[in-house]
Design a protein around this nucleic acid. Sequence first.
RNA 1: GGCCUCAUCGUCUAUCGGUUAGGACGCUACCCUUUCAAGGUGGAGAGACGGGUUCGAUUCCCGUUGAGGCUACCA
Length: 497
Amino acid sequence: MTDHDSSAAEQAAPAIRPRVRFAPSPTGYLHVGGARTALFNWLYARKYGGQFLLRIEDTDRQRSTDESTRAIFDGLAWLGLDFDEDVVFQGSNLARHQADVETLLASGAAYRDFTPQAELERQRADAEARKVPFAFDRALADLPAEVVAQKLAAGEPHAVRFRVPEGVTEWYDAVHERIAFPNKDIEDFVILRSDRTPVYNLAVVSDDIAMRITMVMRGDDHISNTPKQILLYRALGATVPEFAHVPMIHGTDGKKLSKRHGATAVGDYQHLGLLPSTMLNFLALLGWSPGDDTEVMRMETLLEKFSLDGLQKKAAIFDPQKLDWMNGQHLSLMPLDDVMPHIYQAFERLGVASRSDLEARDEWFRGLVELLRVRARTVDDIANQSTPYFVEDVMYDADAVSKQWRDANASAEILSATRERLASLNVWDTASMEAALRTLAEELNISGGKIFQPLRVALTGLTVSIGIFDVLLYVGRDRSLARLDNAVRWLKQDIPA
RNA sequence: GGCCUCAUCGUCUAUCGGUUAGGACGCUACCCUUUCAAGGUGGAGAGACGGGUUCGAUUCCCGUUGAGGCUACCA
């Protein structure tokens, strides 16, 4: 028992520099669940001075695509999860996989099964029809040596199965503590198909041994594969690595996250205007907790606080609302220099302004971003909300007009007076503007808002914007006065004769 | 069906036998205020159920229920 306790305690800080890996199969995009698994592995490796390796499990030739492989690279790069050494493509390790199977065959740990696949399917269907559980029967498949030799000589196709020994297979999982499977519940699984290609469990173990992986951290949907893999490690005479099975990420309905839940690929969030630091922060908090109340964290803090102890057992539900909030936090708290590259991208992607245009008036633009980012949740929000400062003329939003320009005649008069005061200003700064307009409000015996709101519509076409004097500042004197003229003209035209 | 895993506010979580069960998102009231945000101060909101163990259980054990995963010559 004390053995077990100490092994659990040691999991927090590895005795050796860990070698971990992220092993996605390139059959879709980089899923947020996969990204989180990658993040945890990366954090663990970086925190303890180990290596983080990437292996592309492309052995399913039917479903694997180069496009998916690229999406994985792009996603990891966007998140800043860099890997060590060369990428391993599982498909190129076929020879070793086959050699490992030969080793297993030679030691008797595995045997050739000549049962036709169709026959197996028939038996399975039959069992299902009779509502009895299908159990693979080794006695029918594991033939005497002479028969095997004969069939082999005749060139009969066959699969290779692992001979599951008696007993119980257990391990101390870094997140679940002890997990045990009675071997009788594990059937002799196929490790090499009749077309001589390896099956997942064999390929994974063979590669993890070759890559000298010390800790396998992956989704807990792999828990039931683990005993099979442990059995393979042992049969191959290799050291069994440590395991950490992290919980799944579910959609808002509690089901496994899928397309139905909307955006599930990290690329989707990138295109929604999310910051990679937000994604990292948010994902880290789904299935892991620093143990205290810290929530908004940069990578530096994540690295400092990360520990296997904080890993959660329960599946977490992906909450897009909190993600949004968190992005707003990152947006306002990050150093402006770190945000700017993402801003440029959003502006170009949304066609608001080109990067060179923005860099040409760098000081002006950075000032604008400072004002905009406090009230935005995504970089796309910033780009969208900045259009009044880039276009020549604005469009009046119908709701804004009906709400703030309700009485066209009165509005036109207030706007004319406002224009006059602003035009008379010697300097175009916010203090002078405010003084002038507050004075005007007093003279007209109305509240400041009665001037500011119609003015906001005239300048932006909208009811919401940055502070009204900042709007005047960033729209600029000439454009502001021109927009006021347009507004007055528009309001007068709109008045029925 | 079998095997495995999980179970604190709607959601993410803290609690490592003794707390008015804490924080965050969201919701809500108020404050601030030229709008919208942001920010500030409050509020509503949780230990699935049943047994044990214990002076004392959210916490440890068992069962029930519920949820999820796996059950392929997919990965």
